[in-house]
Simulated scan of single mutants.
Amino acid sequence: MQWHTLLALALACTPPSVALLRFQCSQLVTQRLDPLVEPGLIPSPHVHQIVGGNSFNATMAPSKDMPASSTCTTCSFSQDFSNYWTAVLYFRARNGTYKRVPQMSQISGATGGITVYYMSDALYDTAQKSKVTAFKPGFRMFVGDINARTKAAVSRFRQLTYTCMSDASTRAPESLAFPNKTCAYGIMANVRFPTCWDGVNLDSPDHMAHMAYPENGTFESQGPCPSTHPVRTPQVLFEVVWDTKSFNNKADWPTDGTQPFVWANGDATGYGNHADYVFGWQGTALQDLMNTPCVVNCPAANPKTQSTAAMNKCIQNAIVGEDINGWFKTLPGGYTAQYS
């Protein structure tokens, strides 16, 4: 039985006690900027796709009033001015040239972007019994290793995965590496951030040390947080669906049989999956939502949602003026496919 069917059945039978938020954010801008890892660098080394509040910029100095800097957001919750971003996926053709892979939204009419989750318990646990502490103004984090090229290297992050989709509802199985076969509907990249905070630092030099995974297992296994990071935060999950259908002709794939997709930083293994998060919810909106019984659609908890048209209207012109959509001999930034 597919994930969406299981969720629907559970919702019909189980009254939730705490929140599981799932919402779409349309595309804000796609360009070579990374204000978290490479602040102030124009352009940054590789291409990212960004969603959320339109105050996104090259520096993004920590601000306790980040929402006030934005005039709109591409997310369906109009109080969410956070920024969420990932690398961009490219296709490597048999002749060695590269082409950007387009994204698909999971809601009709939205322009690409990311589906975002905030959960107090595992996705499949629709009772959502646990209490969590929302992030604070100025909070930011990163997950992944752009240089990872082996299963061992990415396994320490536990849940950076891919799903080869046969249709829009496919959620399993998941793999740590890029799928090595054609995917009829597309490839979903899944990013799950750590869920235990040290309770003090809003950031750290590597943007990861202030966060940790549960002491045992994963967020889904409900393991306790380590004593060094005792504060349980929401599980933040990104789902990014890459529309690979137009690249499914194996006559266009590399002759050596390797899969043809590569992240913008040159990673052709998939192990270099990574993502960035800068918190920007207005006031206590996120904590209020996480405290209110609701699952997926939460208008009773927080009616401040906006239309898909309003999400799509919030766009930002790229600061970096370069073509990122044509056919290239090398990826923007000069990268080439790396398999090890």
Rank of each mutant, 00 (worst) to 15 (best):
T182D: 11
P179I: 06
T126A: 10
T195N: 09
G326R: 09
V200Y: 10
P234L: 09
S227H: 06
T218D: 02
E38K: 14
E38N: 15
Y335M: 07
T255E: 15
V18F: 11
T133Y: 01
P299D: 14
C225R: 02
G96N: 06
N312R: 05
G266L: 01
A93G: 14
V236L: 10
A189Y: 03
V132A: 01
K64W: 07
K99C: 06
S155C: 10
N190E: 11
K245D: 12
Q287M: 12
V154K: 00
W327A: 12
F238W: 07
A209G: 10
R94M: 06
F142L: 08
E215C: 08
H229T: 08
A268Y: 04
A68F: 06
M60R: 05
Q159L: 12
D203Y: 10
W242I: 00
G334Y: 05
T195W: 04
L176R: 07
G272V: 02
N147Y: 14
P260A: 11
T258W: 00
K136D: 14
C164G: 08
E220R: 07
Q24C: 09
S70Q: 08
D252Q: 13
S130M: 09
S82I: 05
I319R: 02
C164S: 06
G186R: 03
V132E: 01
Q338E: 12
T5Q: 14
A300E: 15
A285K: 09
A12G: 13
E239F: 15
G272Q: 02
R192L: 07
L289T: 04
K181R: 14
P254S: 00
C75W: 04
Q31E: 15
D65P: 00
N216A: 08
L11T: 03
V262K: 01
S69N: 13
G40H: 09
E239L: 15
A300P: 08
K99A: 14
N83Y: 07
N249K: 11
S246V: 13
G186K: 06
Q49W: 04
A134V: 11
L89A: 05
Y84P: 03
N273D: 13
F23E: 06
K181C: 11
R92I: 04
V18P: 00
A337S: 13
W3N: 09
V191G: 01
A268E: 03
Q235P: 02
P39D: 04
G280Q: 08
S130Y: 11
N57R: 04
D206H: 08
N190T: 12
D288G: 13
A177D: 09
A127G: 11
R171F: 09
F81E: 01
S169P: 05
C164Q: 06
L289D: 05
C225I: 02
F23R: 06
A251Y: 02
G53W: 00
D198V: 02
T182S: 12
E220P: 03
L176H: 12
V47W: 01
V191W: 01
T111V: 14
I146G: 12
W253T: 12
Q103L: 15
K245E: 13
C164Y: 01
A87K: 05
Q259L: 13
T233D: 04
G321H: 15
A61E: 15
C72N: 03
D276P: 00
F279M: 10
G223T: 11
K304V: 13
V278S: 04
G144V: 06
V47H: 00
L286H: 08
W253F: 13
E174N: 14
